[in-house]
Simulated scan of single mutants.
Amino acid sequence: MQRSEIYEVTVPINAPAPARARGLHVFTGRATSADEALIRAHQAYATAVTAANAPAVREPDGWSACGIREGWDLDWPSAKATPWTPPRSSTPTGYRP
């Protein structure tokens, strides 16, 4: 069995017209590979959209989604998954891998 580690998945997002703003949505959680991380991030997003009016639920392996911007398009083909490293200046609060 492969050992899981924490991954960060960054997905470009685009606002609907006329704003045309751009940004990134970031997902984090445990996975055994970058490919699995992309799948789990997409699943977390789908779950969040389906349950938009329900409270956020974090899966046991850490994947969840919050702060979804209604109407914005996520560019999943351009998403990138990399092993997560904590910021140098602080440690994440509230995150329990």
Rank of each mutant, 00 (worst) to 15 (best):
A65M: 05
A31H: 12
G62R: 09
C66H: 15
A34H: 07
N53E: 15
Q43A: 14
W63P: 02
G62E: 04
P60Y: 09
P60N: 13
L38A: 07
A56F: 03
A37D: 02
C66V: 08
R69G: 00
S33A: 07
N53H: 15
Q43G: 06
D61C: 06
A51L: 13
V49W: 10
E36C: 05
F27K: 01
H42G: 09
T47M: 03
A54V: 04
W63M: 01
Y45M: 03
E59I: 00
Q43V: 09
A37H: 04
E59F: 00
S64Y: 15
A34S: 15
G62Q: 07
Y45R: 03
C66K: 14
R40Y: 03
A41V: 01
A44F: 08
R58C: 05
V49A: 12
C66G: 15
A52H: 12
A65F: 04
L38Q: 07
G71K: 13
A31Y: 07
A56C: 02
D35G: 12
S64M: 14
R69M: 09
G67C: 10
E59D: 12
E59K: 05
E70I: 11
V57Y: 11
A31I: 05
A56V: 13
L38S: 03
R40I: 00
T32Q: 05
D61H: 10
A46Y: 01
S64P: 02
A56K: 04
G29I: 07
A37Y: 06
N53G: 15
T47W: 08
S33I: 04
A52R: 14
G67H: 11
A48D: 04
A65K: 03
A44G: 06
S33P: 09
W63Q: 01
P60K: 12
L38W: 03
F27A: 02
V57N: 07
L38K: 12
G67P: 04
G67W: 06
R30K: 14
T28A: 02
D61N: 15
G29W: 01
T28R: 14
A52W: 08
A37K: 06
P60V: 09
V57L: 13
A56N: 03
A46R: 15
A46M: 05
E36F: 06
A48W: 03
E36P: 04
T32A: 15
A48S: 10
A51H: 15
W63A: 01
A37C: 03
I39P: 00
T28H: 06
A51C: 08
T47N: 12
T50A: 15
P55T: 06
I68F: 04
A34N: 11
S64H: 15
E70V: 14
P60C: 11
D61G: 09
R69Y: 10
R69L: 07
T32G: 13
A34W: 06
Y45D: 01
I39Y: 12
T50M: 08
V49Q: 10
R58P: 00
S64T: 15
G62C: 07
G29C: 08
R30A: 13
G62N: 10
S33Y: 08
E59P: 00
A56G: 00
A31F: 09
A52V: 12
A31W: 08
A56M: 02
I39W: 11
P55A: 09
G62I: 05
H42V: 00
S33H: 04
A44Q: 03
H42E: 09
S33N: 09
D61L: 07
Q43H: 14
A51G: 09
Y45K: 01
G29P: 05
N53L: 11
R58Y: 05
A34D: 13
A48P: 00
E59G: 05
R40C: 02
